[in-house]
Amino acid sequence: MIELAGVTKRYGPNTVVDGVSLTIPGGGVTALIGPNGAGKSTLLSMIGRLLPMDGGEIRVDGLDVSRTASDVLARKLSILRQENQVAVRLTVRELVEFGRFPYSRGRLTAEDRTRVEEAIDFLELAEFAARPLNRLSGGQRQRAFIAMVLCQDTDYVLLDEPLNNLDMRHASQTMGLIRRFATELNKTIVIVLHDVNFASYHADRVVAMKDGEIVADGAPGEIITAPWMAEIFDLEVPVHAYADRPVAAYFAIG
């Protein structure tokens, strides 16, 4: 369970995250949506102890993220930020092996190696395993980083816009894999999504942020509605139902 109480982040005079309280029980996919600058990524980074808080408290399974040793947290939660265009020349397998670092400190056991191969297979990266990251396409590289996080084998996985810069095929494949993490591997996923329709089809719960606060919280069917979209994004979006799920047709307006 992830518990946030009064979490606040300020940059100078600007309050980016303003006293957010939220409880995410274990399991399932929770999507964070909202306009640019709403504070979604900042909130996610604070949960993943990448950013210090200016106020409030975050606990993951009872562990206070600002006090617990980083290497202990690394076995409890993993976080993947959107800027993974690193020019580091590691092969996919080397990168995924680093996912075992919190356990083995780089001296891989037989079990670690098995986990590495499982993660590579799960993300369908076997044919690229020996290829350096800088010679992969954006989608393949993104999958390699997700494989690393999977290999880290934490109960909680925080993903910051993992579908960015992916084409239609890679975006849907990647989202499908993330959904399988939750369903098949029992992970608790918190994911920042730009496209509310991915949230609609793959999330169990949608949390909408605006101006540093949570403005809506509920099942996708409750939040992906025309009134809520207008409220959250300041945009009149027609919302239709397709395959039992709401679809915000934002690409049809403007």
């Binding site: 102890r49 990448l50 980083s70 947290l73 690394a74 076995r75 993974n84 580091v88 670092f101 996080v149």
Partner: peptide, 21 residues
């Protein structure tokens, strides 16, 4: 410390995620 140097070279976020100071 070679592994830690490699991880730090991948940027702060990746390093911290894997529990590296």
């Amino acid at each position: 410390f070679a592994n830690r140097f490699t991880l730090a070279g991948m940027g702060r976020d990746v390093a911290v995620n894997l529990g590296v100071n």
